[in-house]
Write a protein that binds this DNA or RNA. Structure first.
Length: 221
DNA sequence: GGCCAGGACACCA
DNA sequence: TGGTGTCATGGC
């Protein structure tokens, strides 16, 4: 095990000890996880929950119903999640992709080797790398590490990666350093988000990441 | 009232 | 190919 692997494992265990198991993703079904992954793009999860509740109340949280809804009606239902016009289109792009390519079945989507599924997901307009990896990991139970803005902030401030590192490079850093494990990747990303919410918001004088053993130089909190 | 949140894409030089 | 603008609500 190299130095980075040891460090990443140590950070993981510190986060787990600090925050406890996160039990992600907060969705009842794999399909709901997919919808949540799209709705949460650049948006607070609390707002996403409201949008999903609206979809459930309208009994349209399924492939066929979402595909058949008028865009304006769907946008109105997901309004609390923000970017509602954009996201209504992205949701319909996704469910129509499922219908055309996989008979509306997530089982079919996840049947192929996951690297192939990832490439396929990235062809869907509105699904970028983070959303694709979230869908793979949390809906498909595939060992694809999810990185996000918090991951970049935390691990660049710890000096492990450059601040300007790209998504794929940062993902590769974790994927090539850590053993491939769905459960491990699931918990790790969730813990990073939990920590990021508390300590990594940009604010004057604070660089975040003040987690005991893994503290940055700002000395706050 | 301003800032930020579990991004992605179109457009332009 | 890399930088910039756009999409938008709700909580603090």
């Amino acid at each position: 095990m190299n130095v980075n692997a040891t460090l990443l494992e140590e950070i993981y265990h510190t986060l787990l000890k600090t925050y406890g198991p996160q039990h992600w993703w907060p969705g009842e079904t794999p399909f709901e996880v997919c919808i949540g992954a799209i709705l949460t793009q650049n948006t607070n999860w609390g707002n996403v929950e409201k949008a999903i509740a609206n979809l459930k109340a309208a009994a349209v949280l399924n492939v066929a119903a979402l595909a058949d809804l008028q865009p304006s009606a769907l946008a109105e239902l997901i309004r609390p999640a923000g970017y509602f016009n954009v996201k209504a289109d992205r949701l319909q792009q996704f469910v129509r992709f499922l219908q055309v390519q996989h008979q509306g079945s997530l089982d079919s989507l996840f049947h192929a080797p996951w690297q192939q599924t990832r490439t396929e997901l990235l062809t869907v307009k509105g699904i970028g790398p983070e959303t694709a990896d979230s869908i793979l990991l949390y809906a498909g139970q595939k060992p694809s590490f999810v990185v996000d803005a918090y991951t970049r902030r935390i691990f660049s401030r710890l000096g492990l990666v450059p601040e300007e590192i790209g998504y794929d490079q940062l993902r590769d850093f974790f994927m090539t350093t850590l053993p491939a494990s769905t459960a491990f990747f699931n918990e790790y990303h969730a813990l990073i988000v939990q920590h990021g919410k508390q300590y990594c918001r940009p604010r004057p004088g604070c660089k975040g990441c003040c987690l005991a053993r893994f503290c940055c130089s700002c000395q706050c909190e």
